[in-house]
Design a protein around this nucleic acid. Sequence first.
DNA 1: ATTATTGCAAATATTTTGCAATAAC
DNA 2: GTTATTGCAAAATATTTGCAATAAT
Lengths: 161, 161
Amino acid sequence: MKGSVAGAKITGPPRVHDVQRLRRRLDAHMRQRGLRSTDQRRVIVDTFFDIDEHATIDRLAELVRSRDPRIGYATVYRTVRMLVASGVAKERRFGDGHTRYELADEQAHHDHLICLACGRITVFEEPSIEPVRQRIAERHGFELHEHKHELYGLCEQCRKG
Amino acid sequence: MKGSVAGAKITGPPRVHDVQRLRRRLDAHMRQRGLRSTDQRRVIVDTFFDIDEHATIDRLAELVRSRDPRIGYATVYRTVRMLVASGVAKERRFGDGHTRYELADEQAHHDHLICLACGRITVFEEPSIEPVRQRIAERHGFELHEHKHELYGLCEQCRKG
DNA sequence: ATTATTGCAAATATTTTGCAATAAC
DNA sequence: GTTATTGCAAAATATTTGCAATAAT
C-alpha cells in the first residue's frame, strides 16, 4: 500500500522549529562525513522542512515528486536516513505500520496523543514529567537518552461523531 | 531473519500476573464468539502464560514447537492475535523491528526501560504519572484509553562494560 | 580522476491470508 | 453435519540494498 497513506495532520499549539539551527546541524554532519550536496537532497530536505506533518516516506516521496518527479523512492529513503543520523529528524512509530518522521525539536521535547479512530496526531509538552523520568532511570541504574510517551484514545471529534 | 531473535529477558521487580483472571477473560472471549478450543491453542496459550518475556512471535513459536513441533507459525500468529483481541496480551514495539507480546497487566500498568546497547527490557511502575496523563488528555479534549511510556538509554551493565 | 549518489529493480524481512484438509462442536 | 481451525505456501507490506550509470568534488 505504498500510495495510500492517511493524511495525519498535526493539531495542537504551533511549534516553532529552529529551522536555521537544524539546517546548520545537517550541514555540519554532511561536511564532517564528506557527504555531497545534490539537487535531489536539496529538494527532499527542503520538502521535509516545509511540511508540518508526521510524514511517512511514502508521503514525503509523493510531495517530493510533485516538485521533481524524477526523484526516486530510494533516494528519499536514504536521505531521510541521513536526516535521522544527523539528528535533524526523529523516527516515530505509532503502531499503524507506517514509520513516520518529524523534525527534531531542539527547544523542548514533545510527545504525542494519537486518536485510535481517525489517526490524528496531536503534540503536547509536559516538562513536569522529565524529572520523574530521571528518577525512574536512576532507580534502575539507567542512563537516560530519550523517551517516548504516547497517549492513545479518542480525539474530540471522534468522541462526538 | 525468522530464527535469530535476541533473547530480551525481563529484569525488574517480580510481577504477579493475575493469570487466573486472564484465563477467565480469554475463556469468556472465546465462548462469546464461538471460538473453539484446540490442542494447538491450548499449547500456545499455556506457553504464552508460562514465559515471562516480551516474546516475539518467532520466539513464542520456537518455544511452542519445543512442546509440539507440528504446530505451525501461522497458528501461533493467529492465536496471539486472538490473545490481543481478548485483551489478555499486549502488543509492544520497541523499535528494533520485532513486534513483541506480553501478558496484560490487570492490576497496574507498567512501562518499559529499553537499553539501546543490549536491548534489555526492564519494566517499571510509576502511578504518579497517571493523573498527569489524564490532565493532558482532558486539556486536548481527548478520551484516554491507553498509553506507552518508554525510556531509552543505557542499562547499568552497558554503562560499565 | 576519484568517489559519492542516484534510480531501478531485486532482495529482505515481516506480517497476513487463500485454501484444501482436518478437527471441534 | 456444519463450521471453525490448521498448516502450508503464497501474497501482501514495508524496508533495505546491489549495481551500473551519473554527478559532485
